[in-house]
Protein backbone atom coordinates (compact mmCIF):
# COMPACT_ATOMS: atom_id res chain seq x y z
CA UNK A 1 0.00 0.00 0.00
CA UNK A 2 1.20 3.50 -0.88
CA UNK A 3 -0.07 6.61 0.81
CA UNK A 4 0.81 10.24 1.39
CA UNK A 5 -0.11 12.90 3.95
CA UNK A 6 -1.74 15.97 2.37
CA UNK A 7 -2.79 19.33 3.83
CA UNK A 8 -6.43 20.43 3.87
CA UNK A 9 -6.52 24.18 3.39
CA UNK A 10 -10.27 24.34 4.04
CA UNK A 11 -9.76 23.85 7.77
CA UNK A 12 -6.16 24.80 8.44
CA UNK A 13 -5.79 28.09 10.27
CA UNK A 14 -3.69 29.89 12.84
CA UNK A 15 -4.39 27.35 15.58
CA UNK A 16 -4.01 23.97 13.89
CA UNK A 17 -2.99 22.33 10.65
CA UNK A 18 -5.40 19.74 9.36
CA UNK A 19 -4.15 16.91 7.16
CA UNK A 20 -5.65 13.81 5.64
CA UNK A 21 -4.30 10.79 3.76
CA UNK A 22 -4.45 9.78 0.11
CA UNK A 23 -4.10 6.05 -0.51
CA UNK A 24 -2.56 4.51 -3.63
CA UNK A 25 -2.54 7.67 -5.77
CA UNK A 26 -6.32 7.97 -5.57
CA UNK A 27 -7.99 11.33 -6.12
CA UNK A 28 -9.68 11.56 -2.75
CA UNK A 29 -8.49 11.66 0.82
CA UNK A 30 -9.75 9.28 3.51
CA UNK A 31 -11.77 12.18 4.91
CA UNK A 32 -13.50 12.88 1.59
CA UNK A 33 -14.38 9.20 1.32
CA UNK A 34 -15.84 9.36 4.82
CA UNK A 35 -17.98 12.32 3.76
CA UNK A 36 -19.16 10.62 0.59
CA UNK A 37 -20.03 7.43 2.43
CA UNK A 38 -22.18 9.28 4.96
CA UNK A 39 -23.48 12.50 3.43
CA UNK A 40 -26.75 10.98 2.26
CA UNK A 41 -27.68 9.32 5.52
CA UNK A 42 -26.12 11.74 8.00
CA UNK A 43 -26.02 15.13 6.35
CA UNK A 44 -26.44 17.16 9.54
CA UNK A 45 -23.68 15.24 11.29
CA UNK A 46 -21.31 15.86 8.38
CA UNK A 47 -22.03 19.61 8.46
CA UNK A 48 -21.45 19.52 12.20
CA UNK A 49 -18.05 17.87 11.71
CA UNK A 50 -17.07 20.47 9.09
CA UNK A 51 -18.05 23.27 11.48
CA UNK A 52 -16.03 21.76 14.28
CA UNK A 53 -12.93 21.28 12.16
CA UNK A 54 -13.10 24.89 11.02
CA UNK A 55 -13.24 26.13 14.63
CA UNK A 56 -10.39 23.83 15.67
CA UNK A 57 -8.18 25.02 12.81
CA UNK A 58 -8.87 28.71 13.23
CA UNK A 59 -9.83 29.38 16.84
CA UNK A 60 -9.37 26.74 19.50
CA UNK A 61 -6.73 24.33 18.26
CA UNK A 62 -7.15 20.58 18.73
CA UNK A 63 -7.84 20.61 22.43
CA UNK A 64 -8.16 17.20 24.09
CA UNK A 65 -11.64 18.08 25.30
CA UNK A 66 -12.98 17.91 21.74
CA UNK A 67 -11.79 14.35 21.17
CA UNK A 68 -12.49 10.90 22.47
CA UNK A 69 -9.00 9.81 23.43
CA UNK A 70 -7.32 6.40 23.43
CA UNK A 71 -9.06 5.01 20.38
CA UNK A 72 -5.84 3.34 19.28
CA UNK A 73 -2.81 1.84 20.99
CA UNK A 74 -1.29 3.65 23.99
CA UNK A 75 0.47 6.81 22.88
CA UNK A 76 -0.26 6.51 19.16
CA UNK A 77 -2.49 9.61 19.07
CA UNK A 78 -5.44 7.86 17.46
CA UNK A 79 -8.61 9.61 18.66
CA UNK A 80 -12.18 10.20 17.54
CA UNK A 81 -13.77 13.59 17.08
CA UNK A 82 -16.58 14.12 19.59
CA UNK A 83 -19.90 14.68 17.95
CA UNK A 84 -23.46 15.30 19.05
CA UNK A 85 -24.40 12.91 21.88
CA UNK A 86 -27.02 11.15 19.80
CA UNK A 87 -24.92 11.14 16.63
CA UNK A 88 -24.31 8.01 14.68
CA UNK A 89 -20.88 8.75 13.25
CA UNK A 90 -17.32 8.13 14.33
CA UNK A 91 -14.48 9.99 12.62
CA UNK A 92 -11.02 8.76 13.52
CA UNK A 93 -7.98 11.05 13.52
CA UNK A 94 -4.37 11.12 14.64
CA UNK A 95 -3.67 14.06 16.90
CA UNK A 96 -0.24 15.56 17.63
CA UNK A 97 -0.59 18.02 20.48
CA UNK A 98 -3.12 20.76 19.87
CA UNK A 99 -1.68 21.89 16.55
CA UNK A 100 -1.83 18.96 14.15
CA UNK A 101 -4.59 16.55 13.19
CA UNK A 102 -4.55 13.92 10.47
CA UNK A 103 -8.11 13.05 9.49
CA UNK A 104 -8.81 9.46 8.64
CA UNK A 105 -12.07 7.73 7.91
CA UNK A 106 -14.72 6.20 10.08
CA UNK A 107 -18.30 5.19 9.81
CA UNK A 108 -21.56 4.64 11.51
CA UNK A 109 -21.30 3.45 15.09
CA UNK A 110 -24.18 1.12 15.88
CA UNK A 111 -25.74 1.78 19.28
CA UNK A 112 -25.57 -1.88 20.24
CA UNK A 113 -21.80 -2.28 20.11
CA UNK A 114 -19.41 -1.48 22.92
CA UNK A 115 -16.07 -1.68 21.14
CA UNK A 116 -15.07 -0.65 17.65
CA UNK A 117 -13.77 -4.18 17.03
CA UNK A 118 -17.38 -5.35 16.92
CA UNK A 119 -17.95 -3.45 13.67
CA UNK A 120 -15.90 -4.39 10.61
CA UNK A 121 -15.97 -0.95 8.98
CA UNK A 122 -14.95 0.91 12.12
CA UNK A 123 -12.27 -1.66 12.85
CA UNK A 124 -10.85 -1.37 9.33
CA UNK A 125 -10.71 2.45 9.44
CA UNK A 126 -9.34 2.57 12.96
CA UNK A 127 -6.63 -0.04 12.32
CA UNK A 128 -5.55 1.76 9.16
CA UNK A 129 -4.92 4.90 11.20
CA UNK A 130 -3.08 2.88 13.84
CA UNK A 131 -0.77 1.58 11.09
CA UNK A 132 -0.25 5.07 9.64
CA UNK A 133 0.45 6.50 13.08
CA UNK A 134 3.01 3.78 13.77
CA UNK A 135 4.85 4.48 10.52
CA UNK A 136 4.83 8.25 11.06
CA UNK A 137 6.20 7.72 14.57
CA UNK A 138 9.03 5.59 13.19
CA UNK A 139 9.96 8.34 10.76
CA UNK A 140 9.79 10.96 13.49
CA UNK A 141 12.19 8.85 15.56
CA UNK A 142 14.51 8.56 12.53
CA UNK A 143 14.18 12.34 11.94
CA UNK A 144 12.82 11.68 8.47
CA UNK A 145 9.72 13.62 9.54
CA UNK A 146 9.94 16.65 11.80
CA UNK A 147 7.61 19.17 13.31
CA UNK A 148 8.14 22.62 11.83
CA UNK A 149 6.59 26.07 12.20
CA UNK A 150 6.65 25.84 16.01
CA UNK A 151 5.04 22.42 16.04
CA UNK A 152 2.22 23.32 13.72
CA UNK A 153 3.32 21.46 10.60
CA UNK A 154 4.76 18.14 9.54
CA UNK A 155 7.73 18.31 7.24
CA UNK A 156 9.85 15.66 5.62
CA UNK A 157 9.17 12.34 3.96
CA UNK A 158 5.39 12.32 3.93
CA UNK A 159 4.96 9.65 1.27
CA UNK A 160 4.92 6.02 2.34
CA UNK A 161 5.13 2.70 0.57
CA UNK A 162 5.03 -0.76 2.12
CA UNK A 163 8.35 -2.48 1.63
CA UNK A 164 6.57 -5.53 0.24
CA UNK A 165 5.16 -3.30 -2.54
CA UNK A 166 8.40 -1.48 -3.31
Amino acid sequence: MKYKIVGLGEFTGNEATIYSVILNNEDETLFEKFIEENINSFKDEIYFILDRLEVIGNETGAREIFFKLKEGKPGDGVVALYDEPDSNLRLYCIKYGTQIIILGGGGQKPKDIRTLQEDNKLKEENYLLRKISKEITERIKDKRIEFSNFGQELEGELEFEDETDA
Binding site: G9, I22, I35, L154
Partner: peptide, 13 residues
Protein backbone atom coordinates in the same frame (compact mmCIF):
# COMPACT_ATOMS: atom_id res chain seq x y z
CA UNK B 1 12.44 16.99 2.95
CA UNK B 2 9.34 19.02 2.20
CA UNK B 3 6.01 20.25 3.45
CA UNK B 4 2.85 18.31 2.74
CA UNK B 5 1.25 18.73 -0.64
CA UNK B 6 -1.90 20.87 -0.48
CA UNK B 7 -5.05 19.03 -1.43
CA UNK B 8 -8.04 21.03 -2.58
CA UNK B 9 -11.41 19.33 -2.41
CA UNK B 10 -14.35 20.41 -4.53
CA UNK B 11 -16.65 18.30 -2.36
CA UNK B 12 -15.53 19.94 0.89
CA UNK B 13 -15.61 23.42 -0.63
Amino acid sequence: RKKAEKHSSKLIN
